[in-house]
Amino acid sequence: MPRSFSPIRRDVLAVFGALSLFMSTLEYLVPKPLPFFRLGLANLPLLVGLRFLRPQDVLLLTLIKVFGQGLVNGTLASYVFLFSAAGSFSSVLVMSLVQHFGKSWVSLVGISTAGALASSSVQIVLALFFVFGEAARAFAPYSLGSALITGLVLGFFAQRFVQTSRWLQNMENGYRKGVQG
């Protein structure tokens, strides 16, 4: 960890991480029509945090999300963890790049969609190799299509949350103050 792990930074990361786990558990409990077509609600804290968290904290939050889900769901020692990690990290990478280079031309809608597409693409490749075999290419467009849609929807929600959430504003202020010290 660079410098000291300030308590405020720790708190913000832990709360965001907890929120992510909460979202993921909610999603887990809601029955889905088709497996592998996830809403990605757990990405919400990552999305809204992307704006003000420092890069190393974004990475750390992603780690928390992946390991946290692995531990809570118990899937740490299975292929699910591999897929989750690959999808999450590729998504975060793409989202960070889009945000950095997109600046004010892009909103959370675009960032979220790009991230969802990246995550889905990586997971499709993994699925072809480890789960379904080559013949399953047929489901790739469906998976990508649903990723496009869920990314859009999540982006809209994230955008609205950023605009209306007082709590988020507090967090951001506290974080900025905290990491300056």
Partner: peptide, 14 residues
Amino acid sequence: DLRILDILIIIVGI
């Protein structure tokens, strides 16, 4: 409040 790049990304996605 959709911005330019958002639309571009959506198109690329499609």
